[in-house]
């Protein structure tokens, strides 16, 4: 039975971030064999550019009591692969940002397809990294580390302090690490601050990078000394820029907002 599976990156926020390839795929004439799936953000974005495309809601996967994220991702992968290659549908799985950045579900799907020799099409999207880096001056001369707040605060991983770091998902964690809960972000920030203070001075400059949210999704930034990192909540999709301890001075500066 013929069928296909395509993972479509929709970009980080605004409809104009969607690539031409993704746009053409989504706005192609409806066919009986096409079946699209996505979470709330993807459905909202898709509705603005391809209102005729029905996107089935995967939100329930995150709301089942007793079903952890890895189990949900594995189930999702199995389901989409079956729908495409057993049931013969042209399956579109719509994801926010780039499919390749911090998306465990996509990773599981890619691995599953690779193991079974199944063809998988990836439609790349602009990553959130493109948006957040426009408020700092990253030179690239000493490389870049990308780690999650969880990696540093709770997995015991450390930063190489001669390389600047982008610490992602600093506002996402509840105590259980499951729910998106801004109110719990201060706990995570405290742990992150303490982990960083083990090897950086308290006055080391860091910059919180976040978005103004819909509809403009402006890139916002707030610079502060590391010691003050946990003094307030941060938005769910916030990230942290940590310049190298002895890197170029320009990487310690906050860049002005880009004009649109």
């Amino acid at each position: 039975m013929s069928g296909s599976l395509t993972i479509v990156g929709l970009g980080p926020a605004r409809p104009e971030h969607i690539t031409r390839e993704a746009f053409e795929l989504l706005s192609a004439p409806a066919s009986r064999g096409r079946r699209a799936y996505g979470l709330a953000h993807a459905r909202e974005l898709c509705a603005s550019i391809a209102p005729d495309l029905e996107v089935r809601s995967l939100d329930y996967l995150y709301q089942l009591p007793g079903v952890d994220r890895p189990t949900a991702y594995d189930d999702l992968a199995g389901m989409l692969v079956r729908r495409a290659f057993d049931d013969g549908f042209d399956v579109l799985y719509l994801v926010a940002g780039s499919p390749l950045f911090y998306n465990d579900a996509v990773l599981v799907i890619r691995k599953r397809c690779a193991d079974r020799g199944l063809p998988l099409r990836l439609v790349h999207g602009v990553s959130f990294v493109d948006l957040v880096l426009d408020r700092v001056f990253w030179t690239g001369h000493q490389g870049l580390q990308v780690l999650s707040a969880w990696n540093l605060a709770r997995d015991g991983m450390g930063l190489a302090h001669d390389v600047p770091a982008l610490v992602v998902q600093i506002g996402e964690f509840s105590r259980g690490g499951e729910a998106l809960d801004t109110a719990q972000s201060v706990d995570m920030l405290s742990e992150l601050r303490d982990a960083l203070l083990a090897s950086l001075p308290s006055e080391h400059p860091v910059t919180i990078l976040y978005s103004s949210g819909p509809p403009e999704y402006r890139s916002l930034a707030r610079s502060l000394p590391l010691s003050q990192l946990a003094e307030g909540e941060v938005p769910v999709y916030a990230n942290l820029w940590v310049p190298a301890r002895e890197g170029p001075n320009i990487e310690r500066l906050q860049a002005p907002e880009s004009h649109r």
Partner: peptide, 11 residues
Amino acid sequence: SQLALGELRLE
């Protein structure tokens, strides 16, 4: 069981 029921509701 929950995931199975979820897929039936999805499809």
